[in-house]
């Protein structure tokens, strides 16, 4: 009798042990899952956060405008449609980017330009060039402009070599301007990327928003009578 009671007690104790083990295992699994999530979040925040966005910028060199499209993680936008709008949304030029994501067209003077690049699937970006930008890059009142603008073909989907100087005195200015533009290019690109970069603070801000909004929601819910 006593022996059976003892066995039953041991049985109950073993059953309780099993339940506790089960609970420990479950909470360990739960903790592991949370650790995974946390490390994932930390990994994400360590890398620069680029939304999968398409970006475009354009610069004037000589008598042509070079349009460059790219995704923010560095990939170029190949075969993307480019449309250039002038004043009153008049279509000034259109074409398709080449394998390097570039599209070139001839400058149309004295117009603010809005360059729109569509990379398909709902991804689109635009870049504005004002008359001042164009004037800055263009070469006014130099023999070069006459050479460049006369008789140029309308199609722009090629990467032509920029117009080079022809040994004239006024062309030192042109050469200098070209050199400055070329050295500005990587900076312009980095600036565009920097403007789009989303850091850890944006992520934390978003998470805070989520918790906050849902917290307000919960508070309002708790105040409902009954």
């Amino acid at each position: 009798m006593a022996g059976r009671n003892a066995l039953m007690k041991i049985g109950t104790l073993m059953r309780q042990e099993e339940i506790l083990d089960e609970r420990r295992r479950r909470s360990r699994a739960w903790r592991n899952g949370l650790r995974c999530l946390l490390s994932l979040l930390i990994l994400i925040s360590a890398a620069p956060a680029y939304a999968h966005k398409v970006n475009v910028f354009a610069y004037v060199e000589g008598a042509q405008v070079y349009v460059q499209g790219y995704f923010l993680d560095g990939k170029k936008t190949k075969n993307s449609a480019v449309v250039v709008y002038g004043e009153n949304d008049a279509r000034l030029a259109e074409g398709v980017t080449n394998g390097e994501g570039e599209y070139v067209f001839n400058v149309i003077p004295n117009q603010d330009m809005r360059i729109v690049l569509n990379a398909g699937q709902g991804h689109q970006a635009e870049y504005r060039l004002s008359v001042a930008d164009i004037a800055g890059g263009e070469l006014h009142d130099t023999p070069l402009l006459n050479d460049a603008s006369v008789g140029n073909a309308e199609s722009g989907a090629h990467v032509g070599a920029p117009v080079t100087g022809s040994g004239n005195g006024g062309n030192i200015e042109a050469v200098v301007r070209r050199a400055v533009t070329e050295s500005m290019l990587p900076m312009a690109r980095e600036l565009a990327e920097l403007k789009e970069r989303r850091g850890l603070s944006d992520i934390i801000g978003g998470l805070g928003f989520i918790i906050g909004i849902l917290g307000v929601f919960a508070y309002l819910k708790s105040r409902k009578p009954g």
């Binding site: 999530l37 979040l41 994400i44 956060a49 680029y50 939304a51 999968h52 993680d73 989303r198 992520i203 978003g206 998470l207 989520i210 918790i211 849902l214 917290g215 929601f217 919960a218 819910k221």
Partner: peptide, 19 residues
């Protein structure tokens, strides 16, 4: 439900950063 919605919204929000 609100804590659960909150956590999952956060996961979805951050997911678009994983390339």
């Amino acid at each position: 439900e609100i804590p659960k919605v909150s956590v999952i919204t956060a996961v979805f929000f951050v997911a678009s950063l994983i390339h």
